[in-house]
């Protein structure tokens, strides 16, 4: 039992020793350093050449080109936007002009109509005036005629009455009497 444990310990110790001699801490094995450093430098030079000869120019060019494309596209978009806004202002201007034109036309038409209307009204007024004047004249004539007739009738009647009553009347006195009566 005891020897077994001792043997195990010895074996473990032995194993530790062999591990130490074969590996230990491989990083500290100076004999491999020159090899590692040599291959490291080779690799670094290779990567550096790849980076400077191929990658940086290529990717740099692509990125610059992309930046240029994006800038150009943005500029084009900006220009289009400007054009659009220009078109919009032009449209607005045209719209305003059309509107002004329309209102002018409307005003002109209204003025025309009003003028026509005024003319027609004036004409109608004048006609009415003329007709009224004619009618008034006629009425005056008729009235005058009527008055004359009344005087005539009254004279005739009075002559007749005088003659019927046996009197002899001269025209002059009858006229005077009728005129006085009519006035009265």
């Amino acid at each position: 039992m005891a020897t077994e444990v001792l043997d195990a310990a010895a074996a473990a110790h032995e194993a530790g020793h062999t591990a130490e001699t074969s590996s230990g801490m491989p990083q500290l094995d100076i004999t491999t350093w020159d090899n590692q450093i040599f291959w490291l430098l080779v690799s670094l030079v290779a990567i550096y050449l790849i980076v400077t000869r191929v990658a940086v120019p290529r990717i740099g060019a692509v990125l610059a080109e992309r930046r240029g494309t994006i800038t150009n596209d943005l500029a084009a978009a900006e220009e289009l936007k400007l054009q659009a806004s220009e078109a919009e202002t032009a449209y607005n201007k045209a719209l305003a002009a059309a509107r002004a034109e329309a209102s002018k036309i409307i005003a002109a038409a209204r003025a025309d109509i009003e003028a026509d209307l005024a003319k027609a009204t004036a004409k109608a007024d004048a006609e009415i005036e003329a007709k009224t004047a004619v009618s008034e004249k006629r009425i005056a004539e008729i009235r005058e005629g009527a008055l004359e007739s009344v005087t005539e009738v009254a004279k005739d009647t009075a002559k007749e009455l005088v003659s019927v009553l046996g009197g002899k009347a001269d025209a002059r006195s009858i006229n005077a009497a009728v005129a006085a009566r009519l006035k009265g």
């Binding site: 491999t32 291959w39 690799s43 290779a46 790849i50 191929v54 990658a55 290529r58 990717i59």
Partner: peptide, 22 residues
């Protein structure tokens, strides 16, 4: 050595990424 091998693999991988992709 295996250092050489794995450094070479690293270089090849870098080259592939930088050159094939672009």
């Amino acid at each position: 050595t295996n250092v050489t091998l794995w450094m070479a693999i690293a270089v090849v991988a870098i080259a592939a990424m930088l050159m094939l992709g672009t």
